[in-house]
Write a protein that binds this DNA or RNA. Structure first.
Lengths: 339, 339
DNA sequence: CTGTTAGCGCTTTCAA
DNA sequence: TTGAAAGCGCTAACAG
């Protein structure tokens, strides 16, 4: 019993019927008598039958496999996205091949080759920093293999993208600062050629507007958002002829850097920092003064992206952009404790 | 050109030879004339031939797939382990199915079923907190499917484990505390059914011994190492009739929780906290007072585990335990700044 | 509703 | 060194 080598033929032989009937029954086809079906399913269970996906897929010329390309698996946002993808894919009967581009376009290209060789049914991709367009996805296009960008996408028409609502997230973060009675809110912003930072900046501006706070050019400090930029950014703020009492960072790395530097020089302004970024819970819980606007968006995006891709696999004409909404992480207890 | 549907038969037909010869050539068999082989390989490349792994694997009844079970993908240690596994597996021509048990034995069991159904060639597993033994791996044993434990393992003979040198790591961490003149060092320890926590406890004890510090039962506080346990643990320490001046945490989650709680109640003891855990760099840079003993071991362990499993797949008699050595992360600048 | 038949694309004896 | 032939386990016409 429980032999892994049980095939539909074994079941057919024992029951004195044909293997095609067994196949139908196992696939829950309506073209099998209820009685026969029951008999077959019972016997299958008894023998410990397990479908051989290899054979099944060969016959159907489908692999039931999705390729996933991320810059780096170990970044929390991506690992949680993968968790969401895996779960969704699994439920739908798909396996997932996960690859990391390590922010290299060249690696991204060679990964696509490998995925092609593996005959994946579809691809989920979050592009590397080096990637400027989708030319290297030609192989997929040629073979009509659907793909969906998630989070990092090329700004290209007729593609499917799953992204976060950056405008809204930024808006919420800044509004939170305003609720805390901050009036001079600085913004550490990112490269304005990238959609996400443009939208976060817009959200910042819009929140100020809504609450009739004058927008000041000099409060917006643009950088590449590395931790090392943070000290410079903070210095610029401190050099201003008035006191800043709130800070909105366009990502968590620069927020962490800013807090570190502020601690280092023993200065406690600004009183509130908010950041839009993909912090993991552990980080968030350590950085008390920072408020992260995005509540575990990784897995949400992963789920949405996987679902969209699976839809596209059955109907490749679907093109859409899904904007995932985010929540403010509420950490009231810690937020105002250390003023 | 570049049609993905090129088969060995197409090549054979064009060249006027048999498909079996083509197959041999493509598999670099020595039983093909050099000239023919070159001809075949050239034509294959020209036509953009790609082997259909499905068919190949069906014939060979191998899936070239490894199953990986981890408690949670998004924990930094595991995502970096997965990165290492992926890379190693990929190079060796294996794909990887990644699953998370979410610390549930039940889920772990059902994942194993799924992996069996997927006919994986081998399994890498890091067990859940609930898992006490390897009984649920019976399906693998029955079918002679090799498996390797990594990081979290059952302490069972004749299994293959890839682990960190927990004893050594803990010893180093505690010795570091002693070097900082701590004498009353508490230990937040974990479930003693898990080898890793047992060994970290041993390392703690051993370091004390070496430096002639009396071991005190009441300084060891066992919990499930969740962040929520931390507050309770700290309370127990504070209730002691003497002052604790050092703290060694068996993992980083509880260390972070402890620091949070200490901050919250405005208490600055203990002066030094060390933790053995798999912190990511961002976390480490935020948690100044904590010293993490293990320097990015995840991918190291992943690579070692995948290699061992692949070895076992070809020779299932290999049984060994690989102990991966670790380094102390040095963060002198921050360590003593905020006392 | 069930059986017959013909492969999916590849590997691997066995003969030649 | 190459070819012929069989079949991995499953599915999907097509008949009946």
């Amino acid at each position: 019993m429980e032999n892994s080598k049980v095939t539909i033929h074994d079941i057919a032989d024992i029951l004195g019927i044909d293997s095609s009937t067994v196949s139908r029954a196992l696939n829950n086809s309506p073209r099998v008598a209820k009685k026969t079906k029951t008999k077959i399913l019972t016997k299958a269970k008894e023998l410990g039958y397990r479908r051989n996906h290899l054979a099944s897929n060969l016959r159907k010329s489908k692999t039931n496999t999705l390729g996933v390309i991320v810059p780096r698996i170990s970044r929390y946002f991506f690992s949680s996205a993968i968790a969401g993808i895996e779960e969704t894919a699994f439920k739908a009967g798909y396996n997932v091949i996960i690859c990391q581009s390590l922010e290299s376009l060249e690696r991204e290209q060679s990964i696509l080759d490998t995925l092609l060789a593996n005959r994946v049914d579809g691809v989920l991709i979050s592009i590397s920093m080096e990637t400027k367009n989708d030319n290297h996805l030609n192989g997929l296009k040629l073979r009509n293999i659907p793909y969906v960008f998630f989070d990092r996408h090329c700004n290209i028409e007729k593609n499917s993208n799953v992204v976060i609502d950056d405008f809204e997230a930024a808006f919420m973060a800044v509004e939170h600062l305003i609720d805390q009675k901050c009036t001079e809110i600085a913004h550490f912003s990112g490269p304005q050629n990238l959609e996400i930072y443009k939208n976060r900046f817009k959200g910042y501006k819009s929140a100020l507007e809504k609450h009739n706070i004058t927008f000041r050019e000099e409060l917006v400090i643009s950088s590449s958002l590395m931790e090392k930029d943070a000290a410079e950014n903070v210095k610029k703020i401190l050099a201003l002829p008035f006191n800043v009492d709130g800070l909105f960072c366009a990502n968590d790395v620069v927020a962490i850097g800013a807090m570190k530097y502020l601690k280092e020089i023993g200065i406690k302004i600004p009183e509130e920092i908010a950041t839009v970024g993909f912090s993991n819970e552990t980080i968030s819980s350590v950085i008390e003064p920072a408020l992260t606007t995005i509540n575990q968006p990784g897995s949400k995006i992963g789920v949405a992206a996987a679902n969209l891709l699976i839809d596209k696999i059955s109907d490749n004409t679907i093109h859409k952009t899904i904007i995932v909404q985010t929540n403010l992480i509420q950490r009231k207890s810690s937020l105002r404790t250390y003023k």
